[in-house]
Amino acid sequence: MHIPFLQRLQGLAGPAVSKVMSSGSGPEKDAAERIIQQVLAGLPELLGAAVVQLASGQALAQYTSSREFHLSKVLGFNTEVVRQQQKALAALQLGPDEQLEEILITLHTQLHLLRLLPDGQRFLYVAVDCRDTNLGIAREVMRTCEQ
C-alpha cells in the first residue's frame, strides 16, 4: 500500500535503511549504484558503504543498514583522511608507481576501509562489523567491485 504521509514520516526519522540512495545523475550515478550493489552482494551484513567524490566529499551513492550509522557525518572526514594521506605520500617522493590504494581504520568491533577507485577521483568506503566479516573478504570484495 502506498501512503505518502507514512513515507514522509519515515524520512523524518533519519536516513533510509537497507536501501541504496544516490545523488547526481547520468553514468557516474549509475556506476556508483552498481558498485554499491556489488559490495552488498559480497558483504550482505555490512554496516555502510558509499562511493564518494574526492574533490567534494559528496556521496554519489550510499547504503546503510542502521539508522544510527550516519554516513553523511563521516564522509567529509574520510575524504580529508584520503587527501592528507596522498599529501604525505607525495612528500615522501616515492615515485610514480607508488600510489595510494587503500586505507584501513581498525576499531574494536568495526573495520572501516577506504579504497581509491581506478579513476583516482572517487573512493569506495565500506564499514563492516569484525564479528560478521573478516578483513580479507572485505578487501577482496572491494577489489572486485572497482573493475
Rank of each mutant, 00 (worst) to 15 (best):
H2G: 07
H2W: 12
P4C: 08
L9Q: 12
Q10L: 08
Q10S: 11
L12Y: 04
L12V: 03
A13F: 15
P15S: 11
A16I: 00
S18G: 10
S18W: 08
K19S: 13
K19Y: 11
V20I: 15
G26R: 03
P27G: 02
P27I: 12
K29M: 12
A31R: 04
A31K: 15
A31C: 15
A32P: 08
R34V: 04
R34W: 10
I35V: 14
I36G: 03
I36N: 00
Q37V: 14
V39Y: 00
L40R: 14
L40P: 13
P44R: 10
P44Y: 12
E45K: 15
L47Y: 06
A50H: 04
A50Q: 05
V51D: 12
V52S: 07
V52D: 07
Q53A: 13
Q53P: 04
L54A: 00
A55I: 06
A55T: 12
S56K: 13
Q58G: 07
A59H: 05
A61N: 04
A61T: 05
Q62E: 13
Q62L: 15
Y63R: 05
S65T: 02
S65L: 06
E68G: 12
F69V: 13
F69C: 08
L71S: 01
L71I: 15
L71Y: 01
S72G: 09
V74R: 14
V74Y: 10
V74A: 14
L75Q: 09
G76Y: 01
G76H: 06
N78L: 12
E80L: 05
V81W: 06
V82N: 13
R83A: 05
Q84G: 06
Q86P: 03
K87F: 11
A90V: 03
A91K: 02
L92M: 15
Q93W: 03
G95K: 01
P96G: 14
P96T: 14
D97A: 06
D97S: 09
E98Q: 10
Q99I: 07
Q99M: 07
Q99E: 05
L100A: 02
E101T: 10
E102Y: 01
I103G: 00
L104G: 00
L104T: 05
I105W: 00
L107P: 03
H108N: 09
Q110E: 13
Q110D: 11
Q110V: 06
L111T: 08
H112W: 05
H112T: 14
R115A: 04
P118S: 09
D119E: 01
G120A: 05
G120L: 02
Q121L: 07
Q121S: 11
R122A: 04
F123G: 01
Y125G: 00
V126E: 01
A127D: 10
V128D: 02
V128R: 02
R131G: 08
T133C: 04
T133F: 00
N134A: 08
G136L: 03
R139K: 14
R139M: 07
V141T: 07
V141P: 01
M142P: 01
T144Y: 06
T144F: 01
C145K: 05
E146M: 13
Q147K: 02
Q147P: 02
